[in-house]
């Protein structure tokens, strides 16, 4: 969460003094756009809460599995669910824990990927001018041997 602040600081002051090394400064417009996208996504997610979109409901912002089951009972009164979940979390806490676990596993894999990709990207000697982060090439001196290709 430090980098958006750094970005903002950079835009407030002179463009040159915020980001330290040259490559960081040159990548800024691109990074700023990315952070802007994140910000807009977060705003859209929070907006319903701010405007009180759930205020008219008895249980606002519910995840409505239970309600749905009741409702189908009303739509098709003779319909009976003919199969029950094999395992149902005994409480909302455990269920939310499992959801958190799911998100954590996914986020962990994604984080691992980006860590690995970034390292590979940094250790690779500058090959052509294709890469936008070309400024990282000084770091490539560290390990030409690690290049795979």
């Amino acid at each position: 969460m430090a980098s958006p602040e750094r970005d903002t600081a950079g835009h407030g002051g002179t463009p040159a003094d915020g980001g330290g090394p040259g490559p960081r400064t040159s990548g800024r417009p691109r990074a700023a756009t990315t952070w802007l996208l994140v910000l807009v996504a977060a705003l859209i997610a929070v907006l319903p809460l701010l405007i009180g979109a759930g205020r008219h409901l008895a249980e606002p912002f519910a995840g409505a599995d239970g309600q749905a089951e009741e409702a189908v009972g009303e739509l098709a009164p003779d319909y009976r669910p003919w199969f029950a979940p094999l395992y149902e979390a005994p409480s909302g806490e455990i269920e939310s824990g499992l959801f958190a676990l799911q998100a954590a596993i996914g986020a962990g894999v994604i984080g691992y990927y980006f860590g690995a990709a970034r390292t590979r990207h940094r250790l690779r000697p500058a090959a052509g001018g294709v890469r936008p982060g070309g400024g990282a090439s000084p770091g490539a001196e560290a390990g030409p041997g690690t290049d795979r290709r």
Binding site: A45, P48, A53, G54, H56, L57, A62, Q102, A103, G106
Partner: peptide, 15 residues
């Protein structure tokens, strides 16, 4: 996996 686990509020007052 991550996105399927994230319940996000929407303008209709549900998630």
């Amino acid at each position: 996996f991550v996105l399927s686990a994230l319940k996000i509020p929407s303008v209709t007052g549900s998630c």
